[in-house]
Design a protein around this nucleic acid. Structure first.
Lengths: 188, 188
DNA sequence: CCTAATAGTATCGTCGATAAACTAACTGGG
DNA sequence: CCCAGTTAGTTTATCGACGATACTATTAGG
């Protein structure tokens, strides 16, 4: 599943995508990492939309994240909102301009051209293999998996309502579609 | 072959690898990009071991590359050598310390742990699919393919000797195993 | 030749990244 | 209760990647 050649391919593909992403982000006074963060936030559930979680997702420090987030806020792309229960925690929400910018710039056009050329031929297989690869990476390094809420081992149903057995809270239906910082794979 | 989910996976996998690569590179006064450049140079043939080529491979500007290369030279990891035919061209060779450092730090340990866990199960399939993906990306954006010399449409044999039909020169056997800036895929 | 193109360098400004020190808020055991 | 320990986030300082631009030196070609 993993060898040097696969590593080389991933490194080069992502270097090229990154370079293209920079071209898209720069006119908006942004860098690739900002678009990655915006994209993450657009998919994170309510337990996972914090600076800390973004940092864990991208493998960057919290100090760095604090900086990135204040840039995004200053540009009006996200809105900060402090948690009602725990005043230390900040939730980050995309604003309408943020969503618009994300849709406009991400993924970069080189990827979209690719999508047009290669119409979903074998996408499923690649998706599954990369998923397995990521899970291996996560397992080997104690990273968080950031999987979809409803695929989590703690996901339950109580009286027709979705429920998180780890955090012991009920879940809105739309939250279960999003990715969660606390996500854990079923024990193999 | 390409959809948003595949994009997300590649972005996240490479973000985590990049973060880990930084941890490995920093003790040596280096950044991830330096290791990527060293790795490229270790695999480039004699037409492709120039600052320009490294920049094209990684999607970065030549000015940036010029800087990176002088850092690597100052640390004694590479050696510059000007071309005999064209005095503008500089060839970059790994030194023994450069090779040692590369072996020590690249790929980062998170990847090696992965390799130990998932012994070559389905590596072939993933490799082929990512290769196809990269070729699509290359084709859609007029990037160079940087394939192995001997897989190039201009690769020939003349009297038992390998020969490049594009550059019109004979090739040493070991050069044909390496990657080439001028590489072109066979017309489909 | 003289012009245009090419490989590489030098210099500049911006800003992403880490580390470390800091504040504020929560938690839990006496 | 309170105080020690922990956690979320910010701040500050330092470093250096990166793009842009202008520059030099060499080569190609009409």
């Amino acid at each position: 599943m993993a060898n040097k050649r696969v590593f080389d391919l991933i490194e080069r593909i992502s270097a090229l995508l990154r370079s293209d992403s920079r071209r898209h982000a720069m006119p908006h006074e942004l860098q690739p990492v900002h678009l990655q963060a915006l994209d993450y936030l657009s998919r994170a559930n309510c337990f996972s939309d914090t600076p800390q979680a973004v940092g864990e997702y991208l493998g960057l420090t919290k100090g760095n994240m604090s900086q990135r987030m204040s840039v995004l806020e200053k540009l009006g792309l996200i809105r900060k909102e402090s948690d009602e229960r725990d005043a230390r925690v900040v939730h980050l929400h995309l604003t309408a301009p943020g969503k618009r910018l994300l849709q406009l710039t991400y993924p970069p056009s080189s990827w979209r051209d690719l999508e047009n050329r290669m119409r979903s031929k074998g996408a499923r297989a690649l998706e599954e293999e990369l998923t397995e690869l990521l899970h291996g990476l996560v397992a080997a390094n104690d990273f968080r998996s950031f999987g979809q809420c409803k695929t989590c081992r703690f996901h339950q149903r109580k009286a027709g309502q979705a429920f998180c057995g780890l955090l012991q809270v009920e879940l809105e239906a739309d939250q279960t579609e999003k990715i969660c910082r606390e996500h854990q794979l079923a024990t193999a």
